[in-house]
C-alpha cells in the first residue's frame, strides 16, 4: 500500500469536494430513507384501515386538532434561512483559510499534464471516453442526460409519491434514478478521481502511480470475432446488433412493464412508453458496453466509415 500516494490524491485541493461528497450523499440517502420508511409504514396502516384514512392528517409528524396548519414565514422560516446562511459562511471561511485553491505552473501547451483531468464534475464523462468514442461520450451522452432529465416529469405518469418521501409507491422510478445518479454518475466520478492515473490507466487505491507503466491490451471488434472482414459486412452486422439490442430490449421492457407495472403501462401513451424504453435501454447500454470491453476486450460493436460504436 502506498499510503502517501493515496493521501496525495485525497488531499489534492480540487479533490476535496469529491471526498466531501461521499459522506454528504450517505447522510442524505439515510435521511431520505428514514422518512420514506416512516411514510411507507403510515401508508400501509392507512390502507388497512379505511376509517382511519378518512380522519388521519396523513403525515408522520404529530398534528393535533386546534393546531394551526400554517405558520408565519417571519420568523419561523426566515430564522432558519438566516442560520443556514451563517453556517454556510462559516464553513466557507474555515475551508478558505485552511485550504488554498490550486494553482499550477503557467499554462504551457508544450507540456502535457499526465493525467490531464477534466474538472471533477465532468470526470464521469471523461471515464466514458475509455469505452466510447468522443462523439458519444462527450456530445451525445451529455445531451441525452440533459434531455433525459427534462423528460422525466412527462414520462413518469405515477401520480403517487408527490411531495413526500416514499419507496414502496415509486420503486421503479427511484431505482432508475438512483442507478443513473449513484452508479453511472457519482461512481464514475469516483473512478475518474481516485482510480485513474497516468495514461488514464487503472491504479487501485494505494497503488503507486507509475508513469512508465505500459499495458498491452489487444482489443478486438465484435465483427472480427464473427469473422466478418468486409466494410459493408461490418456496417450491416453492427446495425443488426445495435438495432437488435434496442428491439429485443424494447420487447423485454414491454413484457416486464405488462407483467409488473400494468397500471403505469395503461396510464402511459405510446410516445411516453417508447421514450421510456429508449432512455432505459441507453442507460443500461453503458454498463453493458463497459462489461464486454473489460471481460472480452471488445472495442467496437458497429463499425462504419463515418462512425464507430
Amino acid at each position: 500500500m502506498d499510503w502517501r500516494q493515496l493521501w496525495e490524491i485525497c488531499s489534492a485541493p480540487d479533490n476535496v469536494p469529491i471526498v466531501g461528497l461521499i459522506p454528504l450523499l450517505i447522510f442524505y440517502i439515510y435521511l431520505a430513507w428514514k422518512q420514506a420508511h416512516a411514510n411507507d409504514m403510515l401508508i400501509e396502516q392507512l390502507e388497512g384501515d379505511a376509517a382511519l384514512a378518512k380522519t388521519h392528517h396523513r403525515k408522520t409528524w404529530p398534528f393535533k386538532p386546534g393546531w394551526q396548519k400554517e405558520i408565519h414565514v417571519w420568523p419561523f422560516l426566515l430564522r432558519i434561512e438566516f442560520l443556514a446562511a451563517i453556517i454556510v459562511t462559516i464553513i466557507l471561511m474555515v475551508w478558505s483559510i485552511t485550504l488554498n485553491a490550486p494553482l499550477e505552473e503557467p499554462a504551457n501547451p508544450n507540456l502535457t499534464m499526465n493525467p490531464a483531468k477534466a474538472p471533477w464534475y465532468f470526470l464521469g464523462l471523461q471515464e466514458m471516453l475509455v469505452y466510447f468514442d468522443p462523439w458519444i461520450a462527450g456530445v451525445v451522452m451529455p445531451t441525452l442526460i440533459i434531455i433525459g432529465l427534462m423528460v422525466i416529469p412527462y414520462i413518469d405518469t405515477n401520480p403517487l409519491g408527490s411531495g413526500y418521501y416514499t419507496w414502496k409507491q415509486r420503486k421503479f422510478s427511484l431505482s432508475a434514478f438512483l442507478f443513473g445518479f449513484i452508479i453511472l454518475w457519482v461512481s464514475m466520478i469516483m473512478i475518474g478521481t481516485f482510480i485513474r492515473g497516468p495514461g488514464w490507466q487503472w491504479f487501485w487505491p494505494g497503488q503507486t502511480w507509475d508513469h512508465n507503466r505500459l499495458i498491452y491490451e489487444v482489443n478486438r471488434d465484435l465483427p472480427d470475432i464473427f469473422g466478418i472482414t468486409s466494410n459493408l459486412g461490418k456496417g450491416i452486422f453492427g446495425a443488426i446488433v445495435v438495432g437488435g439490442y434496442y428491439l429485443l430490449g424494447g420487447f423485454v421492457v414491454y413484457s416486464l412493464f405488462r407483467r409488473y407495472k400494468l397500471k403505469d403501462f395503461t396510464r402511459m401513451s405510446l410516445l411516453q412508453f417508447s421514450i421510456t424504453q429508449f432512455l432505459l435501454l441507453t442507460m443500461v447500454a453503458l454498463p453493458l458496453k463497459m462489461g464486454i470491453r473489460l471481460l472480452w476486450h471488445i472495442k467496437y460493436v458497429w463499425i462504419t466509415p463515418w462512425f464507430n460504436i
Partner: peptide, 11 residues
C-alpha cells in the same frame, strides 16, 4: 410538501 400521503386506491 411535506404533503399528506396518497393511498394506492386514490391514485
Amino acid at each position: 410538501g411535506p404533503a399528506p400521503v396518497m393511498l394506492q386506491e386514490e391514485a
